[in-house]
Simulated assay, not measured.
Amino acid sequence: MVMAEFGRLYEQQYAVALFNKVRFDMEGGGGPQSQLLQRKIPLENKSIFSGSLYQCLEENKKWRNRFLFVPDTYNINYYDSKAAYDKHLPPKGTINCAGYKVLTSMEQYLDLISSSLPGLKAKVGSAPFLKFPYQFPLILWHPYARHCYFCVETEKEQQKWHAVLQDCVRHTNDGKNYQLIIISYCLIKNS
């Protein structure tokens, strides 16, 4: 029984540990990391968090107030409003946070863009491609997927949402989603 439980946990976490080792070998830096993820007991059929914030729409670069609901899967469902959620309408979209990084400033975002796109040096002082309605952005950055732009009105809200989004990223990186990322990462670094 004990070995069966260990085997299940090992299978879930092996890909994450392998990815961390490959990344450490390729990039260097940092110290050795723990090989096992710390997991809480799943919160089955419960809401992790919900609330409203502003989201930038990709198609027209306009900001809309959205209601976000984070169920026990740690995927983010977003709705037009809390009323739409209360009426059990389908979400406008869902974000699987596996592989994302949560950023809280345009400087962090531009640094990641500069480091991931050789030859391109983005500066904060240059003409912005995106204007935030408030000075407290939240950006979900992914090296191979669409970036998501959010914004809140206060620093306290930013800290709260940052913690929630970090939890979503950490809990969705359970190994199953990283298998393709490991392959893509190795192919890009070796090309």
Rank of each mutant, 00 (worst) to 15 (best):
V2L: 13
L112Q: 05
N173M: 08
V124L: 15
T94D: 03
N173I: 01
I48A: 00
Q159W: 03
D174A: 09
I139D: 03
N173W: 02
V22A: 12
Y149P: 00
T73E: 12
V169Y: 07
P71F: 03
L36K: 05
G51M: 10
Q179C: 05
R64V: 00
A127N: 15
C186Q: 09
Y178M: 14
N96R: 13
I139G: 06
L53N: 01
Q166W: 00
V70S: 04
F69E: 06
L37C: 06
K176M: 12
P133R: 03
C151F: 02
I113A: 12
I48V: 14
F49G: 01
N60K: 13
S115K: 14
K40Y: 05
G125T: 12
Q55W: 00
S115Y: 08
F129K: 15
K62R: 14
Y54F: 11
G29L: 12
A127D: 14
C168M: 05
W161H: 02
G93S: 10
G175T: 03
S105I: 05
G31Y: 09
G7Q: 13
L130M: 15
Q33S: 12
A15R: 03
S116V: 08
N177Y: 05
K40H: 08
K156V: 13
R146G: 00
A17G: 11
A122G: 05
L187V: 10
N177P: 05
K189E: 11
Q35T: 03
M3L: 12
N45H: 13
T73V: 06
L112G: 05
L68N: 03
A122S: 14
M1Y: 06
F49I: 01
Y79H: 04
Y85Q: 12
H147M: 10
K176S: 15
T154L: 13
H171E: 15
V102A: 14
L89V: 01
Y185C: 08
D80G: 12
S81F: 06
Q158T: 09
F19D: 05
L57E: 11
L68R: 02
F67K: 01
L120E: 01
K189T: 07
Y10S: 11
S191F: 09
M106C: 10
G29M: 10
I48Q: 00
S105P: 03
G93V: 06
S115R: 15
G119R: 04
A127C: 13
Y185D: 07
Q33N: 08
Y78I: 02
H162G: 04
N65I: 02
E157Q: 15
C151T: 00
K160D: 06
Y85A: 10
Y85C: 08
Q55C: 10
Y74C: 11
W141E: 04
K82L: 10
Y109P: 02
K189N: 13
I183Y: 01
F6R: 11
P137E: 07
R39P: 02
A83W: 02
K61Y: 04
K46R: 09
L53S: 09
Y185G: 11
P42K: 11
L18R: 10
W161C: 09
D86C: 08
E107M: 09
T73R: 08
P71Y: 07
H162M: 04
Q159S: 14
V16W: 05
L37W: 01
Q55A: 11
G7K: 13
C148Y: 14
G119L: 07
C56F: 00
M3N: 11
P71E: 04
E155R: 13
P91V: 06
E155W: 07
L68M: 09
F19V: 06
L43K: 09
